[in-house]
Design a protein around this nucleic acid. Structure first.
Length: 470
RNA sequence: GGCCCCAUCGUCUAGUGGUCCAGGACGUCGGGUUCUCAUCCCGAAAAUCAGGGGUUCGACUCCCCUUGGGGUCACCA
């Protein structure tokens, strides 16, 4: 067989790449890398109505941010450029016309009104809406009408009653009857191809070996198979991945779940953790391990092992896994690097990194890591508590008491041991729980271990935190 | 509704005819360590393997039906 070439074909119609598409990208990427092949990005921007400016850039940026790198694509080029369908229009027209010549497709001049009426009638009779091949029979001289400037589309000419099948790497053989397929529009009246024409032409021209896409495409694969047959092109290998689900089992959607890939990054998830979690959708490590590297995944992965069941995307488990990455998988340096990048625009937090090579800062990282599920959690751990408009008089009294206790400690006594003693003394003398000290100093009843954290903060900063009470 | 895909704890899954009165992970609930909260450690509850028929000496594993879920039926992808 030829070399392995896989691809994803996102449409620039949303804010960013959908997490389900990132999943598809991961699998395509893994298959290509495992076999020393190429992974390609092709932008399918044939829907001019839903087209969104900037979406392509966002998609490519997200892919890069996640480390799913591609060998060929619209911005990096490649041997089969261009990789944007809007720049390949003449190609689709050429093949559409070739199909017409072969009798596998035909011109259609039907107005939208006629199609709508037809559709309504069929629906009223409880029949599946289908084009009635009117133009195949009625149009005698299409070239003349085209020459006159009439609007037209090119439709796939499907001969009913034919049993067909294709092989899916994940689900085995899938059979269908050509009678169930509509005479799909292949070339739209605006000269753009529909997905079906575009995808087949480009996958063939770009020598894609494996078409790995989501399950929702299964029902249109017959049309593609027909196209490959009519054009006498070798069929690629098909594999339809399970669709990621909402908790209610419906197709993962933005109404019920955060779906944009960049959202997870903004929320402080690390790319490796997200990819690791995604890898576990429909696939499991041979030794049942949950945490593994991208490289290990690539080495072990095989499309045949993917389960066809649509898994629920469980953000809770993802969050757990992200915590594992933060405290166990990432090296301390790497963790710090991520943190710096994450807070690059946050002055309060970014200023902390000025001390990043002090032993105390290193300790801060250690005590913070085990308490974080996302990078975003860091801020909640270290930020200075807000000054309230007013405090209960008891609180003020206690804050002053704690302040006095701390003040009795000299600068040279400001260490973990002495601070802990002071806290215990305070807690005992005032007959309050330790949680109160946490509230006084961090604004919350729990947080970073005070002896260490206050040592890091320094005596002055610690006292300042208490001073907000008066 | 037609067509197609699917079906093991709440969730992600292991399991490819006997080693399973079903194992792991998340989550949940207890307990231990501890200055709070976490981490870490220990433990528990949680699937009559959707239901019913077969096949077989023997089915979670093979076949059929039912039920349930999902996808798809556009000049959107």
């Amino acid at each position: 067989m030829n070399s392995v070439r896989t691809r994803i074909a996102p449409s620039p119609t949303g804010e960013d790449i959908h997490i389900g598409n990132l999943y598809t990208a991961l699998i395509n990427f893994a298959v290509a890398k495992k076999h020393g092949g190429k992974f390609i990005i092709r932008i399918e921007d044939t829907d001019r109505i839903r087209f969104q400016e900037g979406a392509e850039e966002k998609i490519l940026a997200s892919l890069k941010a996640y480390g799913v790198s591609y060998d060929e694509g619209p911005d990096v080029g490649g041997p089969f450029a261009p990789y944007r369908q809007s720049e390949r229009l003449s190609l689709y027209k050429k093949y559409a016309e070739e199909l017409v010549e072969k009798g596998a497709a035909y011109y259609c001049f039907c107005a939208k009104e006629r199609l709508e009426k037809l559709r309504e009638e069929q629906l009223a009779q409880k029949k599946t809406p289908r084009y009635d091949k009117h133009c195949l029979r009625a149009v005698k001289n299409p070239q003349e009408r085209i020459a006159k400037g009439e609007q037209y589309v090119i439709r796939l000419n499907i001969l009913p009653g034919k049993k067909m099948w294709f092989k899916d790497l994940i689900r085995g053989q899938i059979t269908f009857d050509s009678s169930d397929i509509d005479d799909q529009v292949l070339l739209k009246s605006d000269g753009y191809p529909t997905y079906h024409l575009g995808v087949v032409v480009d996958d063939h021209l770009m020598q894609i070996s494996h078409i790995i896409r989501a399950e929702e495409w299964i029902s249109s694969t017959p049309k593609h198979v027909l196209l490959y047959e009519s054009l006498v092109w070798e069929q690629p290998i098909f594999a339809h991945l399970p669709i990621l689900r909402n908790p209610d089992k419906s197709k993962l959607s933005k109404r019920k779940n955060p779906v944009w890939a960049s959202w997870y990054l903004q929320e402080g998830y690390v790319p490796e953790a997200v990819l690791n979690y995604l890898a576990l959708m429909g696939w499991s490590h041979p030794e049942q391990r949950e945490i593994f590297s991208l490289q290990e995944f690539i080495d072990l992965f095989d499309l045949k092992d993917v389960q066809p069941v649509g898994p629920v995307f469980d953000i809770q488990k993802l969050t757990w896994m992200n915590g594992v990455y933060i405290r166990d998988v990432l090296s301390k340096d790497d963790f710090l690097k991520r943190l710096k990048h994450f807070y690059r625009d946050d002055e309060e937090i970014a200023s902390l990194f000025e001390r990043d090579n002090s032993p105390l800062f290193s300790m801060l990282l250690d005590i913070a890591r085990t308490r974080m599920k996302t990078l975003k959690d860091f801020k909640g751990l270290v930020k200075e508590p807000k000054k309230e408009d007013r405090y209960e008089s008891e609180e003020v009294v206690l804050a002053k008491s704690l302040s006095d206790t701390f003040s009795s400690l000299s600068e040279s006594d400001w260490n973990e041991e002495r601070i802990l003693e002071a806290l215990k003394k305070f807690s005992a003398e005032q007959n309050v729980s330790m949680k109160l000290a946490y509230t006084l100093l961090t604004g919350k009843p729990q947080g970073l271990p005070l002896p260490q954290f206050l040592t890091y903060l320094g005596r002055e900063a610690a006292l300042r935190r208490l001073q907000r009470y008066w």
